[in-house]
Structure formats: C-alpha cells, structure tokens
Design a protein around this nucleic acid. Structure first.
Lengths: 213, 213
DNA sequence: TGATGTGAAAGCGTTCACAGCG
DNA sequence: CGCTGTGAACGCTTTCACATCA
C-alpha cells in the first residue's frame, strides 16, 4: 500500500532503483526479475522484493517486475512528476559546480535563485540564475517560491543561515556545509552531504580494510 | 582495543566525531561528556559511549572524554596522520570544484594528478595540477603513486575506467559518477556519492514527511 | 556526584526458505 | 517452471539501566 511510511534504508535504495530502472528503460528493457536488478546494484533478490513491496510495487510470478510501471511509481514517490523550486546558497567552488551540474536540473528540479555574501559576485549570473546578496535571503526565497535549498557555505555561517531558512516556507535543505544541522522546526527535512567526510570515510575503509583473501 | 574491526555505522559516525572534536579543540574545549557531544551531533549519549569504546577510546567517569586524545586517536584510525596521494579523473564541473574545494586538501590528502578525455583541457592545469589524457591513466597513476582516485566522469565511462583503476595499485575510489560500481578485485574500497541522488532523497523525504505535530 | 562502561533487552533490517501463482 | 510475496529466523545496532569509579 502506497500510504506506508518508508524506512530510511529503503528510501536510500529507492534512488538507486530509479536511476537504474531509467537506464534499463532507455535500453528497451521491459521486464526484470528481482535477482537481475539486485545483481546490478549489489543487493540480494530478497532485498529487492522487500523494497518493492514496501514501495507499493508488485511483480508477476514467473516474469518479474515491469520497468515502466516501477519508474512511474518511483517518480511519483520522489515527487519528480512535478517541478521543485530550488535555490543555491553559497556560490563558492561547490555551489558553482552544483549550479552547472549535468542531470541535476533534469529530474524535476529548477534552480530559481542563488545567494552569496561576496559583493563582487552579487548581481552577476551563474548558469543563467541571478546571484543575490545574503541579506535578501528571506525576501527572494519567498518571491521565487523556493521549496528546497542547497546550502554550500563555510562552516561558520551554516547554522545561522539554516535558522533563517527554517523560518521561511522552504521545506528541505541539502546541506554541503561541514556542520551538523538539526531540524529546528517540524516539517523541515535535512540531508547532509560532506564530500570531505566521504573522502575520509574512504581512507578509513582502506586503512581498516579486511586482510582479505 | 584498537585492533578491532569497526562496524559500518560507527565508521560513518567517526568522521562526524572527528570534524566536531577538531572544532571543539579550536575553541579550547579540553574535555567533553558523551551527552554533550551527542547533543551536538544528534546522537544519544549511550550511542557516543558505545562508539568511543569501539574506536578504542576511554573517558573518565565524572569528567568525560579528552578532546585532544580523541582527535589523535581518530586521525590515526583515519590514516590522516599521513599523506594520501589522490588523483581526480574527470575534470567537468564537479571534478573542477573538488580540485579547488577548501578543506579537501588540508586533512592529509594531496592532489597529484588530474585526467580528462577532452583534448582542449589536456595539458592545462587546475589548482596547480596538470591535466593528463585519459589514455595515460595507468602510467601516470603509477608514476605519481596515487592511492585514492576521485572518479567524476559521465555514466557511460565510469565502469570501464573503474576497471582500469582496479588493475593498478590504487586502493580506493571515491565515485561521483551516477553508476553503481562493484569492487571487482579484493582490496579496492569504493565509496559512492551521487549529489543528484541526494537531492532526490531530500525530495522524497519531503513528500513522505510525517504529518508531524 | 556526575559521568563512564557494559550486560541485557529491545528494535530494525536483512536473509532464509518455501508456498503460491502466472 | 520461474519468480514473486512473505512469515519466521537471524544478526546487527541501538537503547536501557545500573554497577562502578574518579
């Protein structure tokens, strides 16, 4: 049933399913069994079937799952059937790259505004979007109808800006700043991404790697 | 005991601990109880104590944990007490941003080479590092003693390049490409980061958000 | 007293295994 | 026959609760 709450691990895998299924669809694959899909993504077949059931998708015994139907269901669940208004806050190296990132703005996300503190970039455009001063944050977020914010500012500024965002209509923050943000208000979702941290995780994994066979 | 195997969830949190403890250290904090550290990062105090025990760190009853000692222990576990040689493969928007990303190259990681397919950028430099043609991959990876590779190429090229990397001495890949890579050889660690996927996850979380109080 | 360290219990998520269906 | 859907078993994490220690 599609009314369920989805578990965090399933939520994470759902994105991978969608990405892969879209690719399969482009290749003309119409139907796929859980075992094959699992092999591509590194999951067990049982895992895939559990996830599909949780996400409200049914397969056919003897045949597998229908790719097109899965893509549609997942897109709906992801809210990709509609367009999200997104603003980028902090136009440094990373913010700039995200603004121009291929595929970022092709799945139902539209960049409607950018912000920075640096006066030398305010007023200019980036990937066709105007850069505003951070002092106009609330005003422009409201005017543009921003629903999701990408936060890519230095550590020192992240928390205070997040607090300001939390008081607007924005319902989600994708946080690239090296600070742990807490949802200060109900209804504000936060996803943390710290590329330096991932790099460290890789180093950690290598150092603590199993003395494998 | 520092010889233990560390569980994945603990490994993930370890990076957050280090980041936060380094900040506390800069602020002159010498000692901190598990409850306070947990509150900052959004973990329970019990969680923090379990993790510390697993990572081989002891606190003092009535006082808490020593920040300096924790930082040092974690840095050793992360292999940050030494310098990792890193190459960036794919100098598009994202690769370029990572090459110049603050804090990325300040924690024991040194960028020693970059690669791209596009002839118009080959030979030029990015953040002081020369860009090589992708055909020289194996040669340059070896010459520079690259240990970790950052993969930021289009979906179609990721798998084949990863296979080539797997045959070298490189021991880890940080994969930003929108493809799931499988460790083809033992000893090769892979960490996946897909910013588009994280964006989708955020949208998903907002759509499926609890009808909170 | 204030906080650690840790058995024991609880909670989750994954895997197993197999009945059931196209 | 091939593959789904799922109860039950399993194993891994987290939380609880409290003896212990500076």
């Amino acid at each position: 049933m599609p009314g369920n709450r989805i578990a965090k691990p399933t939520e994470r895998r759902a994105g991978l399913y969608l990405r892969e299924l879209q690719m399969l669809q482009r290749q003309g694959v119409e139907t796929i069994p859980s075992s094959t899909l699992g092999a591509i993504l590194g999951f067990s077949d049982a895992q895939v079937r559990r996830d599909m059931a949780e996400l409200g998708m049914a397969g056919k015994p003897g045949r597998g799952y229908q790719v097109a139907a899965m893509v549609e269901t997942l897109q709906t669940r992801f809210g990709i059937d509609r367009t999200w208004m997104v603003s980028i806050i902090g136009v440094g190296n990373l913010g700039r790259a995200l603004a121009g990132h291929q595929g970022f703005w092709r799945q139902g996300f539209r960049c409607v505004a950018a912000f920075d503190r640096d006066p030398s970039v305010i007023g200019s455009k980036i990937s066709g979007v105007r850069i505003h001063g951070i002092d106009q944050l609330e005003e422009i977020l409201k005017k543009t109808g921003t629903e999701l914010a990408i936060l890519a500012v230095p550590a020192g500024e992240a928390t205070s800006i997040a607090d300001r965002i939390a008081k607007t209509q924005v319902s989600g923050i994708l946080n690239f700043s090296p600070v742990t943000l807490h949802p200060t208000r109900g209804g504000l979702e936060i996803v943390q991404v710290d590329v330096s941290l991932e790099m460290q995780r890789l180093a950690f994994a290598v150092v603590n790697a199993s003395p494998n066979r």
